[in-house]
Nucleic acid binder design. Structure first.
Lengths: 119, 119
DNA sequence: CTAACATATGAATGTTTGTTCATATGTCGA
DNA sequence: TCGACATATGAACAAACATTCATATGTTAG
């Protein structure tokens, strides 16, 4: 195998093919970046708590602020992030704006994560 | 309903019971915090890429650094985080340290997230 | 024991991110 | 139209984080 591309450690032969396999199966850079972005959104306890509330009911911003004991502004900012990520949707009714889950995918992902935590 | 606890907006009646239901079904604070912590770990593209490599093969630190085109130090730091979260495990063999997935839960969670991204 | 290699780790740095405050936008009743 | 209420948003600040550099630890061959 003369000079294959340079490796850092000297244990070529073991991984030579494994590395090729890896490169073949890796999704492309952008997709992996997007994936990380999605998880990043779930990676904040305020947003997780918001989503858990929305599991049970469609609620307005002020209800969320009170339930989670946080400033209305903080909740709004987080809802914006969740909405941009298409994880929640909103509906205006008079002065209030009601938020709910965009789809059940959210629930599935969170439940999966919860299973891991509960071990 | 006289004076139930004060609400921010005036639309009590609609949510009064919904709010009670929500509070009943919410996991406790600490569990939600832990859940967010788990997702936070998946919320970085370097770590995601590391995990994707480990989907295919058990590799050493220098292989990872080369595959991902990053400094060995950066990889080590991230591996430490992944290990503390029990998402990967390591095995020393001579001078090298080989990393692999701790269990298949990791794969499930990431696949679930990927499904969401791929829509 | 020493030199060379593989990995780990602490400190420093630049960036990202969540919350707050102040204020703007939007809605409705009077 | 005006005032009160609900929500949204920009700027500012602090905390959290990823990467880098320098260096320490651990391992093997000679």
């Amino acid at each position: 195998m003369a000079e294959k591309q340079q490796e850092c450690c000297e244990v070529f032969q073991i991984h030579e093919e494994a590395v090729q396999e890896v490169l073949k199966h890796m999704p492309d850079e952008n997709k992996l970046y997007d994936l990380a972005e999605v998880f990043k959104i779930f990676g904040d306890s305020t947003r997780i708590r918001i989503l858990y509330v929305l599991f049970e009911a469609e609620v307005c911003v002020c209800d969320l602020a009170q339930l989670l004991n946080m400033k209305q502004s903080a909740i709004s900012h987080q809802l914006k992030i969740l909405k941009q990520a298409k994880l929640v949707k909103s509906r205006r009714e008079g002065k209030s704006v009601f938020y709910s889950l965009a789809d059940d995918h959210v629930r599935t992902i969170i439940n999966q994560g919860m299973e891991h935590v509960e071990e």
